[in-house]
């Protein structure tokens, strides 16, 4: 029941910086979100036409997952447990502006925060467990409890957790993978240390 799990790899996208496992892979000053997204897409040589149809929330989660899975393709039963604070409010506002004229179906589909889980699942062929939570701020307790529950009940062999938030022009992305062995224990203290280094 109280089996221990560990933090395997992680990716952070914040203020124009892309960090993987503590290493800064890209430093772009503090560009507009769209320029930052484009820069990551290009510098990793990605080719994925669906990327251009996505809203910015999905692009953020998608790119972070690409970089995390860059070296090792995920197992098909890797569960996705994501959370954020603003749900998909940016896309809600963009869609609502189209309501008085011709409501946009291509924006409407992105007015659910769990669509980013669908995008990552499609990209990597993950027919796995999903959960999307909304919380006022980053607080990994429930994600930890639920991911351990899925692993303990053999509902998943791996778990990718993610905090993918977009509010106004502020974005904050932290993805991490859980493993049965490793250096850092998968708990609140270690995750908070990575999320908010002193």
């Amino acid at each position: 029941m109280n089996k221990k799990y560990y933090i395997k790899d992680y990716v952070i996208l914040r203020q124009g910086r892309l960090i993987r496992n503590g290493e800064v892979l890209l430093e772009a000053g503090n560009p507009e979100l769209k320029d930052f997204l484009r820069k990551i897409y290009k510098s990793f040589g990605m080719r994925y036409p669906k990327f251009f149809k996505m809203d910015d929330l999905s692009r953020l989660g998608f790119l972070a997952a690409e970089i995390l899975f860059d070296q090792e393709k995920p197992e098909a039963d890797t569960a996705l447990i994501f959370a954020n604070s603003s749900s998909c409010l940016e896309t809600d506002k963009a869609y609502s502006k189209t309501m008085s004229g011709f409501p946009s179906p291509s924006l409407f589909v992105y007015t659910l925060p769990n669509i980013v889980l669908g995008e990552i699942s499609i990209r990597h062929g993950l027919r796995s467990e999903n959960l999307f939570l909304v919380q006022d701020r980053f607080e990994p307790t429930t994600m930890i409890d639920y991911s351990h529950s899925l692993l303990n009940k053999a509902k998943a062999s791996n778990v990718l957790c993610g905090w993918v938030d977009l509010h106004n022009t502020d974005y904050d992305v932290f993805l991490w993978q859980i493993a049965a062995s490793g250096r850092l224990e998968h708990n609140e203290e270690e995750l908070n240390k990575i999320y908010l280094p002193e």
Binding site: S85, S87, L89, N114, L117, N130, F132, Q135, D136
Partner: peptide
């Protein structure tokens, strides 16, 4: 009030739930 977590906060406060509520938004 548009924030989903705020809905949780309003509900928890009304009844006095002590732990922070969890919002599932998975279509």
């Amino acid at each position: 009030r548009l924030m989903l977590w705020k809905l949780g906060e309003v509900v928890a406060k009304f009844f006095g739930f002590q732990d922070k509520p969890m919002i599932v938004s998975n279509a």
